[in-house]
Structure formats: structure tokens, C-alpha cells
């Protein structure tokens, strides 16, 4: 009867081991490895948030937009309102979520490619506004963060990012296990059938869009804490859309663990490749996406689920 991957006993073991590695990593490594860990976790959070929305069938290219928005909201609130680093991260999530909630009224009428392109354009609009609003944002030069979380100490910042990731994993699992899962899956499969079962499509899409944008904003704010500054080019970089997407495709869509596995594999591989072929790691990402889509469209988690199921039916 184990028809779903979550019910299987293999995954908790794998993630238990992964969790232990994550926990003891700081004690056996220098700041360099920890900074890689923080970067991977940032991408992991973005990947999970992208997956949470694609579960409703809506393909968003707006990650970098909300990520950049969140990083600016955090830095500007710290500079102008003297928010402490942690409150500024929460503030960034609220700003990104609120803006997603407001534009969602218009954007969520669109579907498929129209929705995808509009979310991409939305990110560009955010970037252009911030680029040109020099008096507030510092324009192309960006802004410096006056005070880093834990004064930039490596281990506590790493721990903060691990905690952040655990919260997002829990949130994603809540989405998978609550009525939201039923609504989003029904919307993805067939909107007319979903409506006929009483599902308010707009309401559930708005929830998913707002929550995922808030996560992306918080991720941007967390990243600003790692680097200590924001510029339009770095904060709104297209990589923050494309890399999480590649990670999710590799790990497997429609689950929490797919993006987690994809982020760890591709993130670690990418940091490693960067040393030998700077920027060439993006080419490798591209090749991986093509190979995954051709030969393993369900990603690692989907593939493993299928193999396990096959094994069971042969018993």
C-alpha cells in the first residue's frame, strides 16, 4: 500500500544521515566550507519555494525578483529604520509577500507561458525601480549593511541558515500534508474539475504565490546578511531563478525532498567546478538540466519512488 514516496522508510534514513552531516559540518571545517554550506542552503530554500508553487502547475520565473526585493527590504530597513538583522529578515519576507499578494490579483489570472513570462518581467520591473531610485536605494552602487547578524561570525550564521532551511522544509511538508496539497494538485491536474469539487482556485493560488514570494524575500534577506551589501546586479541576478529551477528538476518536482537533494548535489558540484572552470559550472548546470529532462523527467526522488514501487510489486 506504500503508494507514495513519503510513506517509504528509506527517505527518513537518508535525511537523518544528511542532517547529521549538516549539523557536524561546522566543527570539522573552516569558514570556506561553511560559506559553501550557506550558499547551498540559500539555493535549497529557493528551490523548495519554487517547487511549492509548481505543485499548482504555475511556473514562476519570479524568484530572482522577490529575492532581490527581499535583500533590499532587509538592507534598507536596517539602514533607515535601524531594524536588527533578524527583524529585517522577517520584514523582508512581509514586504515580498505583500507585494506578491497585491500583484497576484492580476498575475494569477494568467496561465502557462503567460504567467511565467509575466513573473520574469515583474522581477525586471523591481530591478529597474531599485536601480533608478537612487535616493533610497543607492542606485547602481547599492547599499552597505551597517551591521551583520552575529557580526558576521561564521558558525552562528551557518546555524541560522540551517534553522531557516528547517523552517522552510517544515512549511513545505505542511503544504504536502494539509488540504492545500489537495487544492494545488487538483488545480494542476484540471481546473474545471477542481472548481466542480468546490475549490476556490484563485484563493489557493494566491496563498501559494504569496507564501513562496515571502520565502524568496526572506532568502534574499538572509543572503544580504552573508555578503553585507546589495547591488541591483548581484541581488536580482538571474542565477537565483535558474539555479534553484535546475536543482528542483534534478532532484524531482512535487516533493520537499527533491529540491533538497538537487540543491545539495548541484550546489556542492557547482562550488567544486567553480574552482576549476569559473562560470563554466553554469554550462554544466545546463547540460544536467537537458540530460535530466531527456532521461529522468521525474528527477532523482521520482525515479527512486518508481524503482522502489517496482521492487515491491515483484515481491
Amino acid at each position: 500500500m506504500n503508494s507514495t514516496v513519503q510513506k517509504n522508510k528509506t527517505w527518513p534514513v537518508i535525511f537523518g544521515i544528511l542532517g547529521v552531516i549538516v549539523m557536524i559540518l561546522p566543527f570539522f571545517s573552516g569558514p570556506y566550507i561553511q560559506s559553501i554550506g550557506r550558499t547551498v542552503i540559500t539555493y535549497m530554500i529557493l528551490a523548495i519555494s519554487w517547487d511549492m508553487l509548481i505543485r499548482s502547475g504555475q511556473l514562476s520565473f519570479g524568484l530572482a525578483g522577490f529575492f532581490g526585493l527581499g535583500s533590499y527590504a532587509a538592507v534598507l530597513s536596517a539602514v533607515n529604520l535601524h531594524f536588527n538583522p533578524f527583524i529585517s529578515i522577517v520584514f523582508a519576507a512581509l514586504v515580498a509577500g505583500l507585494i506578491a499578494f497585491l500583484v497576484g490579483a492580476v498575475v494569477l489570472r494568467l496561465r502557462g507561458m503567460y504567467f511565467a513570462i509575466t513573473t520574469l518581467a515583474l522581477g525586471e520591473i523591481f530591478r529597474i525601480i531599485i536601480h533608478n531610485w537612487t535616493s533610497l536605494t543607492g542606485g547602481p552602487n547599492g547599499k552597505l549593511l551597517p551591521k551583520l547578524a552575529f557580526d558576521g561570525a561564521s558558525i552562528p550564521t551557518y546555524a541560522m541558515m540551517v534553522l531557516f532551511a528547517l523552517i522552510i522544509i517544515a512549511l513545505s511538508e505542511y503544504f504536502k500534508r494539509s488540504r492545500i496539497h489537495y487544492a494545488l494538485t487538483a488545480i494542476r491536474d484540471n481546473e474545471i474539475v477542481a472548481k466542480s469539487s468546490g475549490i476556490n482556485i484563485y484563493k489557493y493560488l494566491l496563498i501559494a504565490f504569496t507564501v513562496t514570494a515571502a520565502i524568496q524575500g526572506a532568502a534574499g534577506a538572509g543572503f544580504a546578511q552573508l555578503y553585507g551589501f546589495v547591488t541591483p546586479e548581484s541581488s536580482f541576478n538571474a542565477n537565483y531563478t535558474l539555479i534553484p529551477l535546475a536543482m528542483t528538476l534534478l532532484g524531482g518536482m512535487y516533493s520537499t525532498w527533491g529540491p533538497v537533494i538537487g540543491a545539495v548535489l548541484l550546489g556542492v558540484l557547482g562550488e567544486f567546478l567553480k574552482l576549476y572552470i569559473p562560470y563554466g559550472h553554469l554550462v554544466v548546470y545546463g547540460i544536467i538540466i537537458i540530460l535530466v529532462l531527456l532521461f529522468m523527467p521525474w528527477g532523482i526522488v521520482g525515479m527512486a519512488g518508481r524503482l522502489l514501487k517496482k521492487g515491491e510489486s515483484h515481491e
Binding site: S3, Y182, A183, A186, R188, D189, N190, S197
Partner: peptide
């Protein structure tokens, strides 16, 4: 159009849920 991402039981549950 069955909801393919849901099991048979979950398909039937949608009406009760929503």
C-alpha cells in the same frame, strides 16, 4: 479527467474537503 496527482481516495476526498 481524474486528478492524476491524487489517489482514488484523495480524488473522492476533494468534494468533502472543499
Amino acid at each position: 479527467h481524474p486528478l492524476e496527482g491524487l489517489t482514488v481516495l484523495q480524488n473522492v476526498m476533494t468534494g468533502f474537503l472543499f
